[in-house]
Design a protein around this nucleic acid. Structure first.
Lengths: 108, 108
DNA sequence: CAGCCGTTATGATAATTTATCATAACGGCA
DNA sequence: TGCCGTTATGATAAATTATCATAACGGCTG
């Protein structure tokens, strides 16, 4: 029996950041494109794109800078705001995970 | 921006206990019926019934003792195994919540 | 300088999941 | 014996999520 958890931040009842969404942002930064990130997370491009725009619209902040066309077809990169969210949330999630695992061992 | 979380236990990739499911079990114990618990949690009877049977089948343990007919139409009560799960999981969730809230304040 | 290529962008549709509806059976009691 | 509120469950509807299809973009190559 294995413990699992999810962690997210809401604004007015709507998810703006979550473990998966932050992984998506990080993958965009590392692959340099939304399509690359989608492939890495085994998710459809459309799904990734939609989540990004949801986050941006709900936060009121631009997270991903995109460009179409060009030699490599285009690409995407993270804004400073996104990098900040990714760093903070990653730390947050890592610490909660550690505590949750320890508590699970203690109690069950 | 408000922090939220969920916590659950899996067996072979399938959820057997979660915060909501444990609330459901507790509501059954307190109301004395599945239908009462469903009403309290603003969920359809069928949904509640299905979740209970999922949990029982995945855990391989009987959680709810039911009876049909009679003056009050029937009812349901928790088995000792269910009471044990409820107690442990409730404590687990409460402690994780406390830590998650503190970490959120520290980091964000 | 026309066409290619891989990307962003987005409407439309399919698939899956979740919730609701409808109905039968139960059994104590008036 | 009939009534009532409950359990139980198949069938359907609604909502959510994922996939398909297609247009536009623009540097680069031949």
């Amino acid at each position: 029996m294995q413990p699992k958890f999810n962690l997210w931040l809401e604004i007015e009842g709507e998810v703006v950041l979550s473990i998966w969404r932050v992984e998506l942002l990080r993958a965009i930064g590392e692959t340099g494109s939304i399509s690359g990130a989608a492939a890495r997370l085994h998710v459809h491009y459309r799904t990734a794109w939609q989540k990004i725009h949801e986050m941006e619209s709900r936060l009121g902040v631009k997270l991903v800078e995109t460009q179409t066309g060009g030699r490599r077809g285009g690409g995407a990169s993270l804004t400073p705001a996104a990098l900040d969210y990714v760093a903070k949330f990653t730390r947050y999630a890592a610490e909660v995970e550690q505590v949750a695992n320890k508590l699970h061992q203690d109690i069950f």
